[in-house]
């Protein structure tokens, strides 16, 4: 296959821009082993000369690494370090045929090759806007991760977007909404509903790629570290209180009120009136607790003192004055 294609590609790279020649090359590519890896319908439509030179480089022995790799289905990455043959107007011929189409990067990525120049021009902006096809997006992301300068560029572009949004907000106020206008321009019937959008798809895609991912802890740690605890702020009353001062004053008032009565209390000048004294329970007097000091009575009376014989018996004064009760 390469034997037939190479002379044709050389002629194309040399500037021969004959449609018949291009058709022969297309036919050769379509029937060859490259057909599975390359879309011949879109090949040679951007830079015909360059594409032809690249194909020559790839197909020519001993530099036909890509063709050989594909032929062996080994999938080993090919080196594109060989210089392209300059001066061949193949690209121009193809662009004249099919217009400007960038296919080289897509083709190379599809066959497992990651050339430095596989990403299209402006790919960083496209990456930021998530406008790249999946394969190129992965390729672009990997490249950004490898090259710090690209990350810096990406941040600068993100900053530009943020500054633009802030500028719009400053000029138009925080309520400006561009999405409604954009949705209308792109033909969405309802700006609030994007047909086919399903937020769960993002989660499923992440889970499919990375497995179960729990970022809650790290996210919350970050948020809590910088966040301030929410406070319920009541409207401060007009008669707001300076609590530290009030606390001191309250303690002072309490101490004063406790001490003041003691300082000013009047000590009773007289002994307490014990007239209301309630005597202890009274028991009968035992023999040694009572003494009859004297008894006086008339000649007709009889008085007898019965002394108790036991401790629990009372002393009894028997009196008979001779009169009836």
């Amino acid at each position: 296959m390469t034997d037939r294609l190479l002379p044709l590609l050389v002629r194309l790279a040399a500037g021969e821009n004959d449609p018949a020649l291009i058709a022969q090359i297309r036919a050769g590519l379509a029937t060859g082993p490259l057909a599975a890896a390359m879309d011949v319908d879109v090949l040679f439509v951007d830079d015909v000369t360059g594409d032809a030179a690249a194909l020559i480089d790839m197909l020519s022995p001993p530099g036909g690494l890509l063709g050989e790799a594909i032929a062996r289905e080994a999938g080993e990455p090919a080196s594109l370090g060989e210089p392209f043959a300059p001066g061949l107007p193949i690209g121009d011929a193809l662009r004249a045929e099919a217009g400007t189409v960038e296919v080289a990067a897509g083709v190379l990525v599809a066959v497992g090759v990651t050339p430095v120049d596989a990403l299209p021009e402006g790919w960083i902006s496209a990456l930021l806007d998530r406008a790249l096809p999946t394969q190129l997006h992965v390729l672009a992301a990997e490249r950004v991760m490898r090259e710090p300068t690209l990350r810096h560029t990406l941040r600068q572009m993100a900053d530009v977007g943020r500054e633009v949004r802030e500028g719009i907000t400053r000029e138009a106020g925080p309520t400006v909404s561009l999405w409604a206008g954009v949705a209308k321009e792109i033909g969405l019937p309802d700006a609030e509903e994007v047909v086919g959008w399903d937020g769960s798809l993002i989660r499923e895609a992440v889970v499919t790629t990375a497995g179960r991912v729990d970022v809650t802890t790290k996210v919350m740690d970050t948020i809590r570290r910088d966040a301030r605890a929410p406070e319920l702020l009541d409207e401060e009353p007009a008669n707001s209180v300076n609590w530290p001062v009030m606390l001191v004053l309250a303690f002072a008032a309490a101490a004063l009120m406790v001490l003041l009565p003691r300082l000013t209390a009047v000590v009773p000048a007289v002994a307490p009136d014990l007239s209301g004294f309630v005597a202890q329970p009274v028991a009968f007097a035992a023999a040694d607790e009572i003494n009859v000091d004297r008894i006086q009575y008339g000649g007709n009376a009889t008085v007898y003192v019965e002394t108790p014989e036991s401790a629990d018996a009372p002393l009894i004064l028997w009196i008979d004055d001779g009169a009836n009760l």
Binding site: A283, F284, N291, D293, G299, V303, L317, W318, D321, A323
Partner: peptide, 22 residues
């Protein structure tokens, strides 16, 4: 009848009993 007069010395919080026969 003639009065009957007596004086007793008794310990505080104690009691005694008199019986007037009729």
């Amino acid at each position: 009848a003639d009065p009957v007069d007596m004086q007793v010395s008794i310990k505080r919080n104690r009691a005694f009993l008199s019986v007037l026969k009729g």
